[in-house]
Structures are given as C-alpha cells and as structure tokens.
Design a protein around this nucleic acid. Structure first.
Ligand SMILES: [Mn+2]
Ligand SMILES: [Mn+2]
Ligand SMILES: [Zn+2]
Ligand SMILES: [Zn+2]
Lengths: 139, 139
DNA sequence: TTCTAGTTTAGAATTATTATAAACTACATA
DNA sequence: TATGTAGTTTATAATAATTCTAAACTAGAA
C-alpha cells in the first residue's frame, strides 16, 4: 500500500486550522485535493465517492461536518446556484461559472475571462466582499 | 369595498398563460403586483403576508403552486443566492444584485450599472440564457 | 345547467440539513 | 509510555423546505 506523501502536508494544514487530522478528514482531503484539477460537488456525491470501496466507512454526519469545517477554514468554497442543494468547489480562487440549466453542471470561468468596466458603489457603510458572475446556459 | 381595477387585467394575463384566474391567484397577484416597486420574497414571507388578515385563507400548498406557476409563466424570477431557501423577485427584468451577508437581504442593481467589457464564449452547442452578477457585501 | 379539466387543500412523504448525545481518539502532559 | 480530556465521529432523531397525493371544489366551455 502506497501512502500519499501529501498526508503529512494535509495533517499540517489541518492542525494549522485547529482541526485534528483524523483518518476521516485525511481520507476526505486526499479525495478532494489529490488531483490536478479542481471540481464541484455536493455532499451527496462526496458521500458516495468516499464510501464507494469498503475500506473505511465515513458517516454522512462526518461528511457534513467536514465539508462545513473545510469551508470555514477556507479549503472549500460554497456555491449557491442551485435550489435545494448546496454545491461546493475545490477551486477557492475568486472565479465565475457557467451553469448548465439542463445538466445542472457548473463549469469554471477563469477570473480573467470576464472583465467588468463598470461596477456600482456599494451601499454606505458596506464593503464589497466579492463579485461573482453566473452565466446560465442551455441548448 | 373597492375592487382593484387591475383585477380584470390580472385575469386576462393569467388566462393568456393558461392559468385560471382563481380568487387565490388573483389575491396573490394583487399582493405581488399592485405596487410601485418590485421586491424580493420567500414562500414563507409571502404565505404570512397573504394570510395576515382573516379575509380568505390561502393554503401553503397553493402558495407553492402559485409561485411555481408564476415563475414558469415568467411573472416572477427565482433568485439563487441563499442556502436552503428559495427567493423570488417581482422584478423580472434582467438585473443584478447586492447580497448582504449580514442581513441576508437582496438589493437590485440596475442592469445598466454594471458593464462587462469581456464575456467568455459558451461551450459548444450551448447558448447564453442570461448573465447575472451577485456582489456580496458586508460591513 | 351540466360536465370536466384544472385547481385548491390538508396532510403525508421526501429531501437536505442540523442537532443530540454516547462512544471514540488525537495528542498534550505527566 | 500511560493518562486525561477536549475534540471528533457516529447513529439516530429532529427540523425545515419543498413536493406529492388524492379528495373536494370550481371556472368556464358547451
Ligand atoms: Mn430545501
Ligand atoms: Mn434544505
Ligand atoms: Zn468553480
Ligand atoms: Zn432583484
């Protein structure tokens, strides 16, 4: 069995956010972050993938807890494009999305691919936290 | 009792979308559209407002059905900025929003107040249905 | 007036999510 | 290395929003 040498890194990262590197969290880290490309997921799909092989069962409650903890820690970003179900993104950089109404799939749009030449001033006493564009597409 | 002379108009509009102008739907139309300014709401708040006075009770199921029917017919727009709860907008024109993370309130941004100088090409075979900007703000 | 498809409704069912509380474990400290 | 404890996991219950069901009702065509 080959143990990812990223494990130590993940453990470190987790500790730095006051999260204990439990085997459940490390397993989820590996699944989420041991890859070349970022991606979008729901708790439902993450749960299925994590528990596909019999190896070690991670409870649904822990999946929820972990996704919440990782989002608070800034390792994940929550995406609000869909009714009734939360989507998450392993791409935590500021970026935009295509949302396909048919397949309900999200695709990243690089931040530099959209340019805004005019942006409104926020209401008094408020600051802009971020600005995101969603482009809804269909056939 | 003064009967809004918009009632006939609403009845007509509803019929034109193959929706019978029932007293429930007309009541909801009056509440939603008999006003100068557009606004944002949830099913929960709409239900409370519609059933505030004893006059005539509209069931929650009908509130859901009607909001869904009006959205399909294009009289309302669904807004997806919030987790776990759907927001609707009586402003059906293409426009953008400020979303206040603190108060969880939406404020319209006129379409002309944001200008995009660069927009990506949609994936092959797909068309842009709409483009919306959400600017998250906080203190 | 009659007939019927469309609508409303109460309540049940479903779905996503959050809360609870007991068992477990990482890890600081002895 | 052993012990204590706060943090974590887990099964399960609870909650919240929404959708479904099927019986009663009604708009409006004929
Ligand atoms: Mn929901
Ligand atoms: Mn929900
Ligand atoms: Zn993304
Ligand atoms: Zn709006």
């Amino acid at each position: 069995m080959i143990i990812s040498n990223n494990l130590k890194m993940y453990a470190q990262k987790l500790r730095s956010s006051n999260l204990r590197p439990t085997k459940q969290r490390l397993k989820i880290c590996q699944f989420l972050f041991d890859r070349k490309k970022t991606f979008h997921f729901t708790v439902e799909t993450l749960n299925k993938k994590i528990n596909k092989n019999r190896a070690m069962k991670v409870s649904l409650a822990t999946i929820y807890n972990t996704v919440e903890a990782f989002t608070s820690a800034g390792y994940l970003k929550e995406i609000l494009t869909s009714k009734n179900k939360s989507y998450y993104d392993t791409n935590i950089k500021s970026h935009h999305h295509f949302y396909d109404e048919g397949s309900k799939e999200l695709t990243d749009i690089n931040y530099s691919q959209i340019k805004l030449s005019k942006v409104p001033v926020p209401p008094k006493g408020k600051k802009i936290k971020n600005l995101e564009v969603v482009i809804r597409i269909q056939k």
